[in-house]
Measured scan of single mutants.
Amino acid sequence: CHSECLGNCSQPDDPTKCVACRNFYLDGRCVETCPPPYYHFQDWRCVNFSFCQDLHHKCKNSRRQGCHQYVIHNNKCIPECPSGYTMNSSNLLCTPCLGPCPKVCHLLEGEKTIDSVTSAQELRGCTVINGSLIINIRGGNNLAAELEANLGLIEEISGYLKIRRSYALVSLSFFRKLRLIRGETLEIGNYSFYALDNQNLRQLWDWSKHNLTITQGKLFFHYNPKLCLSEIHKMEEVSGTKGRQERNDIALKTNGDQASCENELLKFSYIRTSFDKILLRWEPYWPPDFRDLLGFMLFYKEAPYQNVTEFDGQDACGSNSWTVVDIDPPLRSNDPKSQNHPGWLMRGLKPWTQYAIFVKTLVTFSDERRTYGAKSDIIYVQTDATNPSVPLDPISVSNSSSQIILKWKPPSDPNGNITHYLVFWERQAEDSELFELDYCLKGLKLPSRTWSPPFESEDSQKHNQSEYEDSAGECCSCPKTDSQILKELEESSFRKTFEDYLHNVVFVPRKT
């Protein structure tokens, strides 16, 4: 048989008469490798580009789960590009990614509803959504962080984005990388972005840091009482949809009607710091009717980097990364020049730590249904340095008659930039024990000054392991946590139920 035959053949030295091919099969003959313009397919066939392209389009058009959109890589027609490569849609070739590779997620039936953290986790790592997304989240724990972890990498949506009755959302900033909504599939009414009845939605994105392009379709905003109209108009300008909307697409009466839409800028007039305090004062603000001013709200939190936005980490279910302080308005003076500047002394802060701070007014709604208010920009203030805590785990070892090696770990709280350490030492008198000992005694162990690591005695271990207080009263049991108490109650309830079950099964009433 021919060298490319495997198993047997019907005619000697003829690659077209093989029972099976050793390498690849091409047009009725066995070959060692697939010549151009053919590609290896499933490690035994040679196919042309049209064959591989037909497989790709067949799966793409069917949208069946589990099928493969075949691509070409290293002269092979394979189910998908290997790690580190992405497909070129024009020629199906796998090309190296520039940075992290995109991950295209194809949605069944063309859309997916995100109504819980669990459903959001199914899209973790996706960068391109081939379909439409509907966000409908009523509640949950730590929602802002969970949504950002699972949806934060999405850069492109081919269909539309719909935010509907998501009472738990305060902001859409968890879509931190969303840059493009194509609108290839539109919501009824030709809408590519749809926001309806979101009672706590206050911000779409921080438009000073976020760009969003909507290729096709219109915007729809109705019944978002805490979303200011200025935020919607800003989205029109940034996304390129200005002029597409009709009169009733953006409701003037049901958007922002319960919001404090600040239209003035508060400026800080005085800032002073110490290692654990920050004193702030800002310019006074009074609405047209000074009785509408209820006070100020001061927001602050630790910020290692200057990239904080107002609604980071917030949701309507209680999660809030900001510390909020309510401040009463100052006494009002008739003389504008003698107006008191409101302020606040922030206490209990960490030394040498940068804080993000902003302040906003708290006002009631005027009778004319106009909203007044003022808010400052987010500023960054760093507390002063102070003395560091003591170095940890000092170790001293003498390696000769004239040297001592000293080692330690950095302090747990540096409280500033540590530039150097101060080492103090003092000579001590020799131990009298060394002169009084009889060095001729056998088995004498000389006193040693070398360091030995501390260890816990058996008594201390027994005390720590004991669940009861000892007789001397030195140790006591740790208080039980809520989960331990709940577990004990469940076990007790189970024992009672099981005992009742045994009584009912074992003891049967005697027939009379």
Rank of each mutant, 00 (worst) to 15 (best):
V104A: 15
H106Q: 13
H106A: 05
L107R: 10
L107I: 03
L108Q: 04
E109Q: 06
E111G: 11
S116N: 02
S116G: 07
V117Y: 06
S119N: 09
S119R: 09
A120I: 11
A120Y: 09
A120F: 08
Q121Y: 01
L123F: 09
R124Y: 02
G125K: 08
T127V: 07
T127F: 02
V128I: 06
I129W: 06
G131S: 04
S132P: 02
L133V: 11
I134L: 12
I135F: 11
N136Q: 03
R138V: 04
G140M: 03
N141A: 07
N141L: 12
N141Y: 13
N142T: 10
N142P: 07
L143H: 02
L143M: 09
L143W: 15
A144Y: 06
A145G: 09
A145W: 08
E146K: 03
E146S: 02
L147H: 10
L147C: 03
L147K: 00
L147F: 12
E148W: 15
I154G: 01
I154A: 04
E155I: 09
I157P: 00
S158G: 05
G159S: 04
G159C: 05
G159N: 03
Y160P: 02
Y160W: 05
L161S: 01
L161T: 03
K162Y: 15
I163M: 14
I163T: 09
R164M: 06
R165E: 01
S166C: 13
S166Q: 06
S166P: 03
S166M: 04
Y167H: 05
Y167T: 08
A168G: 06
A168L: 02
L169M: 06
L169W: 02
L172E: 00
S173I: 11
F174I: 14
F175A: 13
R176T: 14
K177S: 12
L178E: 01
R179D: 15
L180Y: 12
L180H: 09
I181R: 00
G183L: 02
T185R: 13
L186K: 11
L186T: 15
E187K: 06
E187C: 05
E187F: 12
E187P: 02
E187Q: 03
I188L: 11
G189W: 03
G189N: 09
N190S: 06
Y191S: 14
Y191R: 02
F193Y: 05
F193V: 09
Y194L: 07
A195M: 10
A195R: 01
L196S: 10
N198V: 14
N198M: 07
N200Y: 11
L201T: 06
L201K: 00
L204T: 14
D206Q: 06
D206A: 14
D206S: 10
W207P: 05
W207K: 13
S208W: 13
H210M: 13
H210N: 13
N211R: 10
N211Y: 11
N211H: 15
L212D: 00
I214E: 00
I214P: 00
Q216T: 11
G217V: 00
F220Y: 03
F221M: 14
F221R: 00
H222K: 11
Y223V: 06
K226D: 04
C228G: 04
E231R: 09
H233S: 07
M235I: 15
M235P: 00
E237K: 14
E237S: 05
V238C: 09
G240W: 05
G240T: 04
T241Y: 09
T241K: 13
K242E: 15
R247I: 14
N248K: 06
N248Y: 06
N248P: 06
N248C: 03
D249S: 13
D249L: 10
D249V: 12
A251N: 12
L252D: 05
T254W: 13
T254D: 14
N255M: 03
G256L: 10
Q258S: 09
A259P: 10
S260G: 06
C261V: 02
E262L: 05
E262N: 14
N263C: 05
N263R: 09
L265C: 12
L266G: 01
F268H: 04
F268M: 12
I271K: 14
T273Q: 05
T273R: 15
S274D: 11
D276G: 14
K277F: 08
K277S: 04
L279S: 06
L279K: 08
R281L: 06
W282E: 00
E283L: 10
P284S: 10
P284T: 06
Y285F: 12
W286R: 14
W286I: 00
P287H: 04
P288D: 07
D289R: 03
F290R: 08
F290Q: 04
F290K: 03
F290A: 04
F290Y: 15
R291F: 02
D292S: 11
D292V: 02
L293K: 03
L293F: 09
L294V: 00
L294R: 05
G295R: 01
G295S: 11
G295P: 07
G295I: 13
F296K: 00
M297Y: 04
L298P: 00
F299D: 02
F299T: 11
F299W: 15
Y300S: 12
K301T: 10
K301W: 04
E302M: 10
Y305I: 11
Y305R: 11
Q306V: 07
N307H: 15
N307F: 07
V308H: 01
T309P: 02
E310Y: 14
D312Q: 04
D312V: 06
G313C: 02
C317S: 02
G318A: 13
S319Q: 12
S319K: 05
N320R: 08
N320A: 09
N320I: 05
N320S: 07
S321H: 08
S321A: 13
W322M: 02
W322C: 01
T323S: 12
V324T: 03
V324Q: 03
V325T: 14
V325C: 02
V325K: 04
D326C: 02
I327T: 07
D328E: 15
D328S: 04
L331D: 12
R332V: 12
N334Y: 08
D335N: 12
D335R: 13
P336L: 11
K337A: 10
S338G: 09
Q339E: 15
N340S: 06
H341E: 11
H341D: 12
H341I: 12
P342A: 13
P342E: 13
P342V: 12
W344Y: 15
W344C: 15
L345P: 13
P351H: 06
P351I: 03
P351S: 10
W352P: 00
T353W: 09
T353V: 10
I357V: 11
F358P: 00
F358L: 03
F358I: 14
K360V: 04
T361M: 05
V363D: 04
V363E: 05
V363G: 07
D367H: 03
D367Y: 12
D367K: 14
T371R: 10
T371N: 08
T371H: 14
Y372R: 02
G373R: 04
A374Q: 15
A374E: 01
S376L: 01
S376K: 01
D377M: 13
I379D: 05
I379F: 08
I379N: 04
Q382P: 13
T383I: 00
T383N: 00
A385P: 08
T386Y: 08
T386A: 14
T386G: 04
P388W: 00
V390G: 07
L392Y: 07
P394F: 02
I395H: 13
N399M: 03
N399D: 15
Q403R: 09
I404L: 14
I405N: 06
L406G: 02
K407W: 09
K407G: 02
